[in-house]
């Protein structure tokens, strides 16, 4: 039952998990909302592949970083809402920190003449 490497489209590997966690900081949200939020807040640069989004959500839930609950959406549909768990929040902080260091490092490398 080894976790497979997810094809995250245009996103860097591992980045999708980080973005999902980040998307849920503001509160519980369904899968569609997560995809839309990433799309919009990246100024429509990043497109999350749905084929990758849902397995990623489920994987995070199984890892205990997310919890889920069925609820009703704004337009009265049955939707599954995901929320960050304590472990999820901790993970987000660590990953964010890691990402900052990595992207900073990459940027510095690129800036050198």
């Amino acid at each position: 039952m080894a976790e497979r490497n997810e094809q995250s489209g245009e996103l860097l590997q591992g980045t999708l998990d980080l973005l999902i966690l980040k998307a849920l900081v503001r509160g519980p949200m369904h899968g569609y909302g997560v995809a839309e939020w990433i799309h919009e807040s990246s100024h429509e640069v990043l497109r999350v592949e749905e084929g990758a989004l849902y397995p990623a959500l489920h994987r995070l839930e199984l890892r205990g970083l997310l919890s889920s609950e069925w609820g009703t959406s704004d337009n009265n549909r049955r939707a599954k809402y995901y929320a960050l768990t304590t472990a999820g929040k901790k993970q987000l902080m660590e990953e964010t920190e890691y990402w900052r260091r990595m992207s900073g490092a990459v940027a510095r490398v690129l800036q050198t003449a």
Binding site: G31, Y32, A35, E50, Y54, L62, R77, R78, A79, K80
Partner: peptide, 26 residues
């Protein structure tokens, strides 16, 4: 969680179905 789904096999299938359907509808 796995154990739960093992017992609630049908429900897992329906949930997956619903989640995808919701996404497509939106």
């Amino acid at each position: 969680l796995r154990l739960k789904t093992l017992v609630q096999r049908k429900r897992l299938d329906r949930d997956l179905e619903d989640e995808v359907a919701f996404h497509l509808a939106m």
